[in-house]
């Protein structure tokens, strides 16, 4: 028998739980998921702005290149040139790092949580989008690297620094590149569909009476972003944009 047992034991706090796995950021799995959700929101806002910006391509080379230049000059002369762009890049990079880092950590945790797999796997209702968040996310990461190399860092064969329009048009003329872009946009759409609904669920904003609306909203957002991004490469390929 334990000697330290107090008669008024009832007032003691519950015992501490077992040792937790080493963490990138402290907190419960739920808190970490909530950080993934918040950083996901940053990503969603970014892709939305990016997609809308891309649509300048339909206004012709002058407008698109002007928009590209405008992004560098926002805030001038109060802020130095490209300052805001760099701030955005840093915020985005941080968000993406946390998003991926925590997800990787949670994914490892989930792997450890089921050391023996099922002989006969089965799925009852899970959507394709929800089941492919990790691999789809990883594919998107690969795509982002490709995309940056292709259109930002100039690995592209006809790259002309500063001529966004030219780079895009010459790039998308090569159908394999367009195919990669379109596949990536499908992946992005799936990721956004489950991700956006998940944000509401994980942050606890979701309510039963809003659930359907949030699902529809997430689907709409995913379609707008995915299709919106896809219009430019497709338009280039079919020579609508030259």
């Amino acid at each position: 028998m334990r000697e330290d047992r107090a008669v008024t034991a009832a007032t003691r706090s519950p015992p501490a739980s077992g040792p937790a796995a080493p963490v990138l950021l402290p907190g419960t799995s739920v808190a970490r998921k909530q950080l993934v959700a918040i950083t996901g929101v940053v990503g969603v806002l970014y892709v939305l702005v990016h997609m809308l910006g891309n649509l300048h391509a339909f206004q012709g080379p002058r407008q698109l290149n002007h928009y590209g230049e405008y992004l560098r000059t926002i805030g001038e002369p109060l802020l130095p040139r490209s300052m805001l762009l760099w701030i955005a890049r840093i915020v985005l990079l941080t968000a993406v790092t946390i998003h991926i880092g925590l997800t990787a950590q949670l994914a490892l945790r989930s792997r450890a949580a089921r050391p023996v797999r099922y002989v006969h796997p089965g799925v009852v209702q899970a959507s394709y989008a929800s089941r492919t968040m990790r691999w789809g996310g990883l594919a998107l990461l690969g795509f982002i690297v490709f995309h940056l190399m292709d259109l930002s860092w100039g690995v592209h064969p006809h790259f002309v620094r500063g001529d966004v329009y030219h780079n895009a048009v010459t790039g998308f003329r090569r159908w394999p590149v367009t195919a990669v872009y379109l596949a990536a946009m499908a992946a992005l759409g799936l990721h956004l569909y489950h991700g956006t609904w998940s944000v509401f669920q994980t942050l606890g904003v979701n309510r039963p009476r809003w659930d359907r609306a949030i699902h529809r909203g997430a689907l709409t957002l995913a379609l707008i972003v995915g299709l919106g991004f896809s219009t430019v490469p497709v338009a280039v390929l079919v020579h609508l944009v030259k």
């Binding site: 334990r2 047992r5 034991a9 003691r12 015992p15």
Partner: peptide, 8 residues
């Protein structure tokens, strides 16, 4: 279970 947590 509360008492189990408290050790009684």
């Amino acid at each position: 279970e509360r008492q189990i947590g408290l050790g009684t």
